[in-house]
């Protein structure tokens, strides 16, 4: 039996290197698999999605992943069209959805929402993003992209730039990277530095340096991970406007990067990466989005199938 069968995916903290590599290996198999064979992995199964925050890639990649495994999906893509608008609790919504589906994915604005929902759900639940806390499947997708594009993770110098305070993908990424021997530089404006109350464990497992200069080490990075300044999470717009556009990756900056460096971004982007960078060989963020479907298909297949495939 595989370790993921019928289990929840709540936090990247629950993944050690071995578990991460099980998912990467399963993803490689999913990519190479004959489509007819792949469609047997979730035949007759239903993915229930509950998205209480806007999403494009995460929700669609889960739906596309489920379809590629031969399953179907149903759910709520907009909280205003569900009974939560009438005051229904998250607990009841999750309870109902777990009656209609075989596996659930939840995105919710509150921290810890997935951990709570998993206690309610009778079916395995996947965290599709919980507040500013965690986005574990994004971290899996990010690391898979690095391995695919750089052939390794150990020994890499990785810059993480942008909104490190509110960006949930950053916390999950750092936890995932803490399973490897990497040199991490965190680059952000002072007001968007990583939160100390969320790095208690990361600090014990991962050495990182903090700075506000993107250019300082740009020629040394093997991976540059850029995040969006998240307007929706700022307490007031004035604070957002102060830091909006703090870092913009343009062609001038890309020319200073290593020839074989890669640029990643969880997307959506606003103005952090100019569109003319898309055509450079360093730009791998669309490839990363594509791997999002493959890694999620691997996770779904592992959760739904008792035996390895």
């Amino acid at each position: 039996m595989n370790d993921f069968f019928q289990t929840d995916i709540i936090s990247i903290r629950d993944f050690n290197k071995e578990k991460l590599e099980t998912v990467f290996s399963a993803t490689d198999k999913i990519i190479q698999m004959n489509p007819n064979e792949r469609r047997e992995l979730a035949r007759g199964k239903t993915l229930g999605y509950l998205f209480f925050e806007p999403s494009t890639r995460t929700r669609l990649s889960f739906q596309a992943a489920m379809a590629s495994l031969g399953g179907t999906s149903l759910g709520i893509a907009d909280a205003s069209s569900s009974s939560t608008k009438k005051g229904e609790s998250l607990a009841d919504t999750v309870h109902i959805m777990s009656l209609y589906s075989d596996v659930l994915v939840l995105r919710h604005p509150l921290d810890g929402s997935s951990r709570f929902a998993a206690e309610i759900s009778s079916k395995p639940l996947i965290n599709g993003g919980s507040g500013t806390e965690e986005h574990p499947t994004q971290a899996i997708q990010d690391l898979f992209t690095i391995i695919r594009e750089k052939k390794k993770i150990d020994g890499l110098k990785i810059g993480v730039a942008g909104d490190l305070k509110y960006g949930r993908t950053v916390y999950s990424l750092l936890y995932a990277l803490s399973n490897y021997n990497v040199d991490v530089h965190l680059i952000s404006p002072e007001s968007l530095k990583i939160r100390s109350d969320s790095t208690y464990d990361i600090k014990k497992r991962l050495k990182y340096k903090e700075s506000s200069s993107l250019e300082e080490h740009i020629d040394e990075f093997d991976v540059l991970y850029v995040t969006r300044i998240q307007k929706e999470r700022f307490p007031d717009e004035e604070e957002y406007l102060k830091v909006k556009g703090s870092y913009t990756i343009g062609l001038d900056l890309v020319k200073k990067m290593k020839d074989d460096a890669i640029i990643l971004h969880p997307l959506p982007r606003v103005d952090e990466i100019s569109t003319d960078v898309d055509e450079t060989k360093q730009a791998k963020y669309f490839k990363q989005a594509q791997y999002g479907k493959d890694t999620r298909a691997a996770l779904l297949a592992l959760i739904l199938n008792e035996n390895s495939f």
């Binding site: 609790s89 998250l90 607990a91 919710h108 604005p109 509150l110 921290d111 810890g112 929402s113 951990r115 709570f116 507040g131 500013t132 109350d197």
Partner: peptide
Amino acid sequence: SNPDCISNSNEDI
């Protein structure tokens, strides 16, 4: 103390 924690919401928790 995190105001955005689910344990501070209206859920039965």
